[in-house]
Design a protein around this nucleic acid. Sequence first.
DNA 1: TGCGTTAAATTAACATGTTAATTAGTTGCC
DNA 2: GGCAACTAATTAACATGTTAATTTAACGCA
Lengths: 160, 160
Amino acid sequence: MADTRRQQSHRETESSLRPLRRSLPMALLRAREAVMDRFRRMLRQNGLTEQQWRVIRVLAEYDALEVSQLARHSVLLPPSLSRILKFLSDKGLVRRRAVDSDQRRSELSLSVAGRRLFQRVAPRSELMYQDIEQTFGNERLEQLYTLLADLETAVARGRN
Amino acid sequence: MADTRRQQSHRETESSLRPLRRSLPMALLRAREAVMDRFRRMLRQNGLTEQQWRVIRVLAEYDALEVSQLARHSVLLPPSLSRILKFLSDKGLVRRRAVDSDQRRSELSLSVAGRRLFQRVAPRSELMYQDIEQTFGNERLEQLYTLLADLETAVARGRN
DNA sequence: TGCGTTAAATTAACATGTTAATTAGTTGCC
DNA sequence: GGCAACTAATTAACATGTTAATTTAACGCA
């Protein structure tokens, strides 16, 4: 009887935090890691990190964006994006263009090489998505997208 | 007509990757960031990062674990965990105990101070969970947990 | 016993996450 | 016009993510 605790082993006399299985951040993290594991391998073979690819992908979709917009769309904090943009423009994949009306801002866009890279990698990415759709099922995938968006909205309320 | 492209603006003549709204990794990331934003603020006020708290929480639930197990349960890669354990044991929150049968391994557990910290922070964490449950609804939360676990299983299959 | 192999954990190196501080440019208002 | 307040972006500093290399110990087997 010295140790009857097992799975739910936090002592009942101590503050009782829900078990890890009921942690939403953990569940989201594990699911994301499971999905990204496949993508990361593919991206690495193309010399890209997950985040670098996000930036390229956003620019391919929106054509030209300022840093703030790019940060929002790619879900990157400005400091991270700054470093990534330095890397990508050093590699000649991204171009900067000054904005006349405001010298603090600049517009980012893909270079020709950047577009070529996107065109090469995008099909592989798309294939993986389709594989997931097939394995997981379109219906459940739709449910998941909906729930995730709703969750985002729900927790965003009551902040600020 | 120079720019009729809008949301779905990647040129149709280029390889067509799904729009960002249909990216599962992005959706998972945004949802997680929305949730974590609240937790991170609270944890920081207690001098902890998200990952340090994960480790403490796992140890509170499992009592004593070796590094590999701890890494798996806290969803941290061994290199990250090594650094975090150095930090936590420097702070006196975690203790190491050698394993007799195998000198490469060691067992980690919370110190008294670590347990006290857990007891102080856990209630605040639990409150946030309950707030999310209330805002988002228990039923949808259950659906989400189920879908996330299923997704994990689905994409894990067909790997190695 | 000795040695090649495997395994656990850490360290190394570089990229990103996170918050605070800084820089440079803009705006409002007198 | 000039200055205070504000804003966009970057830089700084430290923590973690990621893969490769290294260290140390255990194991298998001749």
